[in-house]
Amino acid sequence: MSWVQTLNFPFMQHALIAIFFAGIAFPIIGVFVLSLNLIPLRFAMMHVALLGGAIGLFLKVDPLLSGLLFCILSSMALGPISEKMKLGVGILSGYFMTLTLALAFILIYKADIHVLQAFNILWGNILSLSGLDLLFVIGISLIILSIVILFFKEIQAILYDREIALAVGLPEKFFYYLIIFMLGLTIAVSMRLIGALLIDAFVLLPAMAATLISRSLKQTFFFSSLFGLLSGMAGLYFSFVFDIPTSSTIILVASLIIAGCFLFRRGGIPS
């Protein structure tokens, strides 16, 4: 069967549509993660999702849905809690990461849940997306793109320097929490797409490549979306041609793009 013939199958059409939207929108979240140093938070949310999945299995509800719900709830809570406790998001993420993992293990052990069932939430499959999954991907992608277009200047100020954004009279906390919430949504949906462990293929790697060659935030957003789309589409194509796992192939393509951008480096990864 040729590559073109596979496009007649609904699963392939779903995958292509998902890659189109996620490839464009999700790397923008990656730019937020890099600029605000939210990498520990991203890890914490993945582990919260695992606990959600374990609770879902225990309560006999869809573990994916409960995982999504926990991820979204944690994204709404982590920002305000860190402010209230006067702890950095990084420290709080470490706390939540280990706590939720420990709770998940206790639950898995006590409730006699099959470990692999619980860990399934960490592995997604872009070739098995349902119509509802697709709606989630499109919906969240459109939300991300709309927020970035409507509130570009507020987001630019916060990514540059939160202290300055606050000092010039912007509602810095509101937008910071909004960014964390969007990160939670993106991680929740990405888990279904490519799995929690390979989320970086869509979120982080295209953004890293873009920051290497960009001279403005607009350029960074543009290139990260372009690279996300390119690595997603090329990854899907090469995985079919060479019969290798799709998520891993997307990561390989994204890594090659980073290497290419490194050669043409003009900007630099935010420190």
Partner: peptide, 9 residues
């Protein structure tokens, strides 16, 4: 003064 490498003119 902000010393990170955020791309801003």
């Amino acid at each position: 003064s902000n010393s990170n490498r955020f791309p801003i003119l």
